[in-house]
């Protein structure tokens, strides 16, 4: 995980549920590249074509509510989403995103002022998001979660632990 992420914003509202991010009809898909094609299919048909690697999702409250389906995080990882910033996350989505190695930022400040497609900068060292309308602070993740992210996700993290004989 880089200390500074810069990218284009994809803006969403409150309560973006897992059926919007990854509809249940595609759960039998197992190849992350195919999953990527269906990302946000419940939001707008073919939306994944509008996503570029390095894009940053900025959303409102309760992002990822609903199902525990990890595909809703895997598909965004496969598309190269650099980070997800939201006012709050549903608890299982929060876990899944970290476990997939997606940088995740809970920011209670006025991020709704951030505009779709503007370029923002996230600095994990200072805990600040720099956008056109202002600078927004966010608290760091607990050390345990940060270490999973730094290893690139839970699989690599556990592999490291297993080889260290923990």
């Amino acid at each position: 995980m880089e200390n500074i992420i810069k990218g284009r914003v994809l803006k969403f509202g409150d309560n973006i549920d897992t059926d919007i991010i990854y509809p249940g009809g595609y759960l039998k898909e197992r190849d992350p590249k195919k999953m990527a094609e269906y990302a946000f299919e419940g939001h707008e048909k073919g939306f994944s074509k509008k996503i570029q690697p390095g894009d940053i999702i900025v959303a409102g409250k309760n992002f990822g509510c609903g199902s525990s389906r990890e595909q809703a995080a895997t598909c965004l990882k496969a598309l190269g989403i650099a980070a997800i910033v939201a006012k709050s996350f549903s608890r299982i989505y929060f876990r899944n995103a970290i476990n997939q190695g997606i940088a995740i930022i809970t920011c209670a400040e006025e991020i709704e002022k951030i505009e779709n497609h503007e370029n923002i900068e996230i600095n994990f060292e200072t805990g600040k998001i720099k956008a056109k309308a202002g600078v927004y602070g966010f608290p760091p993740l607990p050390e345990h979660m940060l270490s999973i992210l730094k290893d690139g996700g839970l699989i690599e993290h556990i592999k490291k632990e297993l080889s260290a004989g923990k």
């Binding site: 525990s68 990890e70 995080a73 299982i92 876990r95 899944n96 476990n99 997939q100 996700g153 839970l154 699989i155 556990i158």
Partner: peptide, 9 residues
Amino acid sequence: GIGATEMAA
């Protein structure tokens, strides 16, 4: 509820 990868862990 948890995710599939953490279940694998």
